[in-house]
């Protein structure tokens, strides 16, 4: 157990882009002389992921998530730093290492538009040298969750987005890789497709001990799948740790929502902050360390008669908002 699957050491990626100047004058000038601008997309990332972990890789748009995923899957070459997948450097041994990696980009497909889905699978079966029996077995397992055999004879061109992403997910898992990278896999999907996808990811993680790294903007994905979060912004590591720990540290409060019988003289309490009132409702934010919910309720009920209460935990959206610096 606790075998290191992915090791990222001091990873950096710079892009050089041509700076475009304003207006016609700038455009003409650009024909003769172009100024290059360097963008530091990823700066000194360090982390390790153990076998069987599901890690949520989150950050705002343009934070460098996709760039990092593309470097880890051998598509982009890092400017500096090292990426080891199962102990092997992917930059130096791309072809060998990618044999052990599956990748799904929610916004792109590796399936062939012109051919039946099965034809794309058959091509992958040969590219990854998968034995026919093993291939059929894998397909059976995936069919249980994703119902893939139903669409296997359909040309990819005619598929709905949900079907296509399912197809891509199966395509990425056909060769039973140890590591699965998912770049916004649930983007644009409906609720039932999302549900099937998450179920699938959980299942392969449990059964095959597949290490999963996913980027997403979907809170549901994170809540249901990820035990660990890596939050990056401006190419730099902001947070790395257990989801629960991060929540406790960044947002160590809960909110008590109290409904009184009427809206007059709504009481305040010294160890918590009343964040808003609305009619006969009041929201109290309290630190877990300062007071317990039970004590707060009983003390408030002494001041005014309470009709109903509920407690809101700090959600992942709060964490993300705080971590993104808003």
């Amino acid at each position: 157990m606790n075998k290191k699957m992915i090791e990222v050491k001091n990873l950096c990626k710079d892009y050089h882009i041509v700076k475009k100047e304003e207006g016609l004058k700038g455009a003409v000038k650009g024909l003769f002389k172009s100024e290059k601008k360097t963008i530091e997309a990823v700066r000194h990332l360090d982390f390790t992921v153990d076998k069987g972990e599901i890690v949520g890789f989150i950050g705002p748009n343009g934070a460098g998530k996709s760039t990092t995923i593309k470097m880890m899957s051998g598509i982009l070459t890092p400017s500096s730093g090292e990426i080891l997948i199962n102990g092997v450097d992917i930059t130096k041994h791309r072809k060998e290492v990618v044999q052990n990696i599956g990748v799904v980009f929610g916004q792109r497909t590796q399936l062939n538009w012109d051919l039946r889905l099965g034809e794309s699978f058959e091509l992958l079966r040969h590219i990854y040298q998968i034995d026919r029996n093993e291939y059929e077995e894998t397909l059976d397992v995936m069919d249980e969750i994703l119902d893939i055999r139903k669409i296997i004879d359909k040309p990819v061109r005619q598929m709905s987005l949900g079907q296509r992403v399912k197809g891509d997910l199966v395509a990425a898992m056909l060769h039973s890789p140890d590591v699965l990278f998912l770049d916004e896999p649930t983007i644009g999907l409906d609720v039932s497709s999302k549900y099937a996808l998450r179920k699938f990811i959980k299942e392969i993680n449990k059964v095959k001990q597949t290490t999963v790294i996913l980027t997403t903007h979907d809170l549901g994905d994170i809540e249901e799948l990820c035990e660990r979060l890596i939050i990056i912004n401006h190419g730099k590591m902001m947070e790395d740790g257990n989801l629960v720990d991060i929540v406790d540290r960044i947002a160590p409060y809960k909110t008590l929502v109290v409904q009184y019988y009427d809206h007059e003289n709504i009481p305040v309490h010294h160890s918590c902050e009343m964040i808003k009132t609305e009619g006969n409702m009041a929201w109290y934010r309290f630190m877990k360390a300062d007071i317990t919910a039970a004590a707060l309720i009983s003390e408030l009920s002494e001041k005014k008669k309470i009709l109903d209460v509920s407690i809101e935990e700090a959600g992942i959206d709060d964490i993300i908002r705080i971590a993104y610096g808003q």
């Binding site: 593309k70 899957s73 051998g74 598509i75 791309r94 072809k95 060998e96 990618v98 044999q99 990696i101 990748v103 980009f105 792109r108 497909t109 590796q110 590219i127 990854y128």
Partner: peptide, 13 residues
Amino acid sequence: KGTIAMDMMKPLN
């Protein structure tokens, strides 16, 4: 179109 990613992630030249 960025689909070169799909070629680069395969264990082929």
